[in-house]
């Protein structure tokens, strides 16, 4: 299983809006010897089309799976929604002959074909299953001692369970906390750990979406965490880019930097701020970095 090569699936948001996530993933993967290949032609995973037309969404997902299958590579995803969308498409099409035929009729128009299930795993899962926490811990040469980090699991990293084949418990997830612990930082337990970021509601009802997100930020502010750790660009955008908006609407302050897990790992591995894109956040990470510096010196 070790040091496999993966086709890197970035999705729509990351390459344009969340480059810091991509930067940190590439850096960490390189450090650990995970080969990530950019496949020409990966487009949208299909998730945004699910509410519009299920069959069109399937076709869009299947198009990407067919590309990976042609290249003979498993897929590494960074966005939780892309992960669940592609897993779901692979599962549906390999089980449901009718849908497979319908989808392949569409794909035939662009000379592609879905044939057999394609392995799709989120980068976090690849880290855990191919590398293991021990290897990560060994690679963390600059432990983040004393830093208090709250994990946000989001929805689609683990749910629905049947497509993620028992990756982690839905009701009592541990994997992100384990990663945080492996860097030497303190994983902070909090009551809204499993709560959705609200991002999917943004388009339909902005106020409700922000209220959902605010709920978590308010709790984390009271718990005085140093940063929130996410693994999905949707959640990242919701908590980082929209944090200022929420502060205005709800007339309160949170000041919680939002980091992607690979950035946290990269920091503990001794990588530079620039390599990890730590200056590209809406909520500045300066305070956190200073604290880290102080910890290291004192």
């Amino acid at each position: 299983m070790e040091n496999k090569t993966y086709a890197l699936f970035l999705g729509c948001t990351i390459p344009a809006r969340v480059r810091q996530y991509e930067q940190s993933v590439r850096a960490v993967a390189q450090r650990l010897g995970i080969r990530l290949v950019d496949l020409e032609g990966f487009a949208c995973c299909g998730f945004p089309l699910e509410p519009v037309d299920h069959h069109a969404a399937l076709a869009l997902g299947a198009r990407n799976l067919a590309l990976a299958e042609e290249a003979g590579l498993p897929i590494c995803t960074l966005c939780s929604s892309c992960t669940s969308a592609l897993c779901e498409v692979s599962r549906t099409l390999s089980r449901n002959e009718e849908e497979r035929e319908r989808t392949n009729r569409l794909l035939a128009k662009i000379q592609r074909r879905f044939q057999s299930p394609v392995e799709v795993r989120h980068f976090v899962r690849i880290l855990l299953e191919d590398m293991g926490l021990d290897r990560i811990r060994e690679a963390c040469v600059r432990p983040l001692d004393g830093i208090r980090l709250a994990a946000h699991y989001g929805c689609h990293l683990l749910k629905p369970t049947e497509i993620h084949q028992g990756f982690d418990s839905v009701e009592d997830p541990r994997v992100l906390d384990d990663f945080i612990r492996s860097t030497g930082a303190v994983p902070v337990d909090y009551s809204r750990k499993k709560q959705c970021c609200g991002g999917s509601v943004l388009m339909a009802d902005q106020r409700t979406a922000l209220e959902i997100a605010r709920d978590k930020l308010a709790e984390l502010r009271d718990l005085e965490v140093d940063a929130l750790v996410v693994v999905c660009p949707f959640c990242g955008v919701m908590y980082d880019s929209n944090q200022k908006v929420m502060e205005k609407i709800f007339e309160e302050t949170y000041g919680i930097p939002v980091l992607y897990l690979p950035q946290v790992l990269g920091l503990a591995m001794g990588m530079e701020e620039k390599t990890l894109g730590l200056k590209s956040h809406a909520v500045k990470t300066k305070g956190l970095l200073e604290k880290l510096q102080a910890q290291a010196e004192g």
């Binding site: 929805c155 689609h156 339909a204």
Partner: peptide, 9 residues
Amino acid sequence: VWLCATCFT
């Protein structure tokens, strides 16, 4: 119907 966050809880 558009309010569902698709969080699967």
